[in-house]
């Protein structure tokens, strides 16, 4: 092998190793756990970047809402129901304050998805949410479609009482979920929610994964 060829081969090997290191570095960054302050341990739950299965819901303006609507912006989502007198209004109030007080990337979407679609029509959600916030968008739709996203996220819920007569409550998982601009779940923040804690947890996650 000539001197020139040897040098050429060496350069190629260097480049391959270099690129490999960069790729490895980038991919291993994903695996490194999010460093969180002591008071947020047990509050923020990280997950592997998880895409949602294909779903089709209806937003509170009656428009279709699908996976594509999560693309290109961060999304903060919470599940509940409008007949919930205590926890949901408290959490929605917190989420609205968080959306105003913290410096979220532009276009960040705040969602409230119902786990009681039989009672929570898009129109009802619109009226309900407008009371709490101008920011939070409501999602309803077929129960089967809601389950498509609720299940992989671990949003467990059950109805307690007489569903036929409208006299029932819904027990439900109370976490706030954060999706990245590729529509992938990144973290969820456990209930109960407070303005400072939820805001800090969301901003910490966004800044880390951005």
């Amino acid at each position: 092998m000539s001197e020139l060829a040897r040098k050429g081969l060496f350069s190629v090997v260097l480049i391959v190793v270099g690129v490999g290191l960069i790729v490895f570095g980038l991919s291993s960054r994903e695996l490194e756990p999010l460093k969180m302050p002591e008071h947020l341990k047990g509050v923020i739950v990280e997950s592997p970047a998880m895409e949602l299965p294909e779903f089709s819901l209806i937003d509170y303006n009656g428009k279709a809402f699908t996976n594509a609507d999560l693309n290109g912006r961060w999304t903060v989502a919470f599940f509940g129901y409008t007949n919930c007198p205590d926890f949901c209004p408290t959490s929605l109030g917190v989420m609205d304050k968080v959306s105003q007080k913290f410096d979220f990337p532009e276009d960040t979407l705040f969602l409230f998805a119902t786990v009681d679609p039989a009672r929570d029509t898009p129109e009802k959600l619109k009226e309900y949410l407008s009371f709490f916030s101008e920011e939070i968008v409501g999602l309803s739709g077929d129960k089967s479609q809601i389950d498509i996203i609720a299940e992989p996220l671990g949003v467990i819920y059950d109805y307690e009482g007489d569903v036929a007569s409208d006299d029932y409550i819904v027990n439900h998982f109370g976490a706030v979920y954060l999706f990245d601009p590729k529509g992938r779940l990144r973290t969820h923040i456990l209930a109960p929610h407070e303005v400072e804690r939820l805001g800090e947890a969301l901003m910490l996650s966004i800044n880390y994964y951005d």
Binding site: T82, N83, P85, E127, Y128, S130, F131, F132
Partner: peptide, 12 residues
């Protein structure tokens, strides 16, 4: 009593 949206029938 926590004020709710007018459509809500259940209050806390």
């Amino acid at each position: 009593i926590r004020l709710g949206p007018s459509i809500v029938k259940v209050y806390a």
